[in-house]
Write a protein that binds this DNA or RNA. Structure first.
Lengths: 263, 263
DNA sequence: GAGTGGTCTAGACCACGCG
DNA sequence: GCGTGGTCTAGACCACTCA
């Protein structure tokens, strides 16, 4: 049995156990190891795309068996925070170098084959520093009036404008974001965020509705104002469930559809 | 090392290995065990809600270690085919007795709390035996003209009609389905399918679009024909990726939204 | 207290990637 | 041939449930 991390028996992590009540407050060794690795990921000890230490090394560092480290990494891999590659190592997940170009974009061409239409053409309409509305501030966990970066862009596939997006980012983390940066980086925007701002989007939640565009939106998407569109509000989070991006998208669904798998 | 199931070394499962080429064609023991358990699930050896044999029993039956059975069951649990309950056993997953009433329904009230509005009121408009259109037949893997059961219904929350659904089911598996059955069963429709037809929906895929209703649809949902609605086409599968239900839904999204979590 | 799943270990061997 | 992750085993002990 180990000693450096809390073992399973010493466990109730030396909390003042509340008057005879049986609060669980217990966590298995492998979850503690997982938390330690996660902490290193957040701290940037290993950068996106890099390999983390081997299971044997981590086992030695934390003074536990390889099997325990293994279970911790299994969890992290299941959450898409790291990627295992047999024979090579375990790597910090990144939005760059992914087989599917856009990990969080569920819009597919009706033909089914996303590879035929290739990557989206991006057209930045606007990118500026503004003060957060009460609405946006609340969602991003800021105070109304705090600085935020705001961008608007249109994504086109095969020359057809298909997605109109408004993006809000906390001003402190994304100071200096420019339209040029948004356009020139050759890959997913989230990969650019990793590279230039050290911010990794780890998970996201979307609220989807059917709406009609206002005249300006209709114009940008080159559709009539009577065209029903998918409204997709995405809140993306970094480590630790900290919200880092609000994205309001309008998707044309005459040639594309939003795909979701349930289980 | 075991002998009853193929061990890891004998492995390339006695396939005629193609002329020196290194085709993987290899599967670990635990995946073979998983396949065997899956087969028993399909065959109905254990019914939904029942416990499957303990890990020790299965290990003895298949002549492998408990750890190997464990890994197989871990996989099945990750796919929501079984549910583990510490101290009690491992149970065949079911659409009945689930904390979330509707496992495949992602529509939530904007208030966020689905429990306040309670279960949906169901109103069956139609339920009849028809011949499959080419369209429906192709999607369900049938031949045009094959018998299918077709149902149409409206789901209301707090008295407000919110969802209009058309449902198609293979006639052979759902012979004798009646509107009464659709209405009277007190729980998810998929639980009723398990009980009365022995069909378990295991996963599903949805295609989502924004559309305008035709006059009849607008009337049934009590909205104007200019109201944009979410069109949700769901194809639900049983074991073995066999499609067993096509469901075309129209969702009102003025008071509700479709929720999706990405990671 | 008996039985179930859950954790942890230690050690052996296998498959893969790369030099 | 070495190092990496992947599989498999056997055994010990822990946490939960229920009679």
């Amino acid at each position: 049995m180990s000693s450096l991390p809390l073992s399973s028996s010493d466990n109730p992590i030396s909390l003042p156990s509340a008057a005879g009540l049986s609060v669980p407050a217990f966590s298995p060794l492998y979850q503690q190891i997982k938390a330690l690795i996660l902490h290193s990921l957040q701290a940037g000890e290993w950068k996106p795309g890099e390999a983390i230490p081997s299971e044997m090394e981590l086992a030695a560092r934390f003074r536990v068996s390889q099997g325990t480290v293994r279970k911790a990494i299994d969890d992290l891999a299941a959450e898409n925070l790291v990627v295992r590659r047999q024979g090579k190592g375990t790597f910090v997940a990144t939005h760059a170098e992914q087989q599917v170009q856009y990990r969080f974009l569920r819009l597919l061409p009706d033909s089914g084959d996303a590879s035929v239409e290739g990557p989206a053409q991006r057209h930045i309409i606007d990118c500026k520093r503004v003060r957060a509305s009460a609405d946006v501030a609340r969602i991003l966990g800021l105070r109304a009036g705090d600085a935020v970066m705001q961008a608007r862009r249109v994504l086109s596939f095969s020359g057809v404008p298909t997605i109109l997006e408004d993006i809000w980012l906390p001003g402190t983390s994304f100071k200096g974001l420019t339209a040029t940066q948004m356009t020139s980086y050759p890959g997913p925007t989230y990969a650019m965020f990793e590279l230039h701002f050290g911010v990794r989007m780890v998970r996201a939640a979307e609220k989807i509705r059917a709406v009609l565009p206002d005249p300006e939106q209709a114009d940008l998407l080159q559709v009539s104002p009577e065209t029903p569109l998918l409204s997709v509000e995405r809140l993306a989070y970094t480590y630790n469930d900290v919200p880092m991006e609000l994205r309001r998208g309008l998707y044309r669904t005459d040639t594309h559809h939003y795909r979701n798998d349930l289980s």
